[in-house]
Simulated scan of single mutants.
Amino acid sequence: MSTRLVRILGRTVRQQRESRALTQRQLADLAGVSQASVARIERGDRTPGLPLLESLLAAMGVQLTVATEPLDAHLDAELAQLADRSLADRIHELNLDRLLDRLGDLPNAITGATAALLQGAPLPVDAPELAIRWRDSTRLTRWLEAAYGQRWNARWSEFGGLHLEPETPGEHRWRTRYGEVRAVMCDELPATVEVCHGGRSYRVVPLVELEVTNPRTAVLLRRYREGHLRRPG
């Protein structure tokens, strides 16, 4: 599973590489590793071993340092940073509109942190989160096949090596040609409200429902509200 630390390490490698105008291939050649390894680390799909991480950083003339901070203190800083970004940019970054267009008439509802984001709470979102009914599992599988989907394999900490079908044990998380997507499989779609942005409407699970049914999103919403109240102005 991609953890916060894995994502931070991947983001650090990418930022250092881009600041030196290096391609992934060039960095891989300098460090003596494959380009695929660099790509998986930067995406947060792979947990890098310390020798590999040190090799990548050393190839760019830097080294890793370690520090500690109060548990989850990073969340307040991240939420404040995300609050300063435009919603349009974040929707574009998630490939949300393209994904929804490509899903066609497959019934779904936007849920989780993605739904909170569209309702004005700038929470961190790694990939669009959709509620999908179990009765539509076969349709989802066919869509994933057509979209060259790969299932997240927690055992290997990378995409691939698992059957696409939601019934197969494993996280409901796939990488497709239209970006990553995460599903919450359910018997019936949750009640939704309509929100509009940039001339487009989205069917989203209301915040009040998210706070009851999605513990992780509820925690982030509470931290965002507390932090927002503390901000000047």
Rank of each mutant, 00 (worst) to 15 (best):
G61Y: 03
T68S: 07
P51D: 15
T65P: 02
L30G: 10
S37W: 05
D72L: 12
Q63V: 09
L30W: 13
R46I: 03
L71M: 10
Q81T: 12
A59W: 06
D29E: 14
R43F: 04
Q26S: 11
D72I: 07
V62L: 04
L64W: 05
E42S: 05
D45A: 01
P51F: 06
A77V: 11
L56P: 00
D76S: 15
R43Q: 15
G32V: 02
L64Y: 01
L79W: 02
S86Q: 13
L56F: 02
P51Q: 10
V62K: 08
S34A: 11
D84V: 13
A77K: 08
L30P: 03
E78L: 12
V66S: 00
A58C: 00
L30I: 04
R85V: 06
D45G: 02
D72P: 03
Q63F: 03
R40D: 10
A59M: 01
L87I: 14
S55H: 13
D29L: 15
V66I: 12
R46H: 12
G32R: 06
L27C: 04
V66L: 10
D72R: 08
Q81I: 04
Q63C: 14
L50Q: 15
L82N: 07
P48W: 03
L75T: 12
R43Y: 06
A36T: 11
R85G: 00
L30Q: 14
S37F: 06
A80T: 14
L30D: 12
L50V: 15
R46C: 03
A28I: 02
L30T: 12
A80H: 05
P70N: 05
L79P: 01
S34L: 04
E54L: 12
L71K: 13
I41Y: 01
P70I: 06
R43C: 09
V66H: 09
S37N: 12
Q81R: 12
A77C: 05
A83T: 10
R43I: 02
S86F: 07
L50F: 08
E78S: 10
A77Y: 00
Q81P: 02
L82Q: 04
L71E: 12
Q35I: 08
R43H: 08
R40E: 07
S55K: 09
D84F: 07
D76G: 13
S37H: 13
A36M: 05
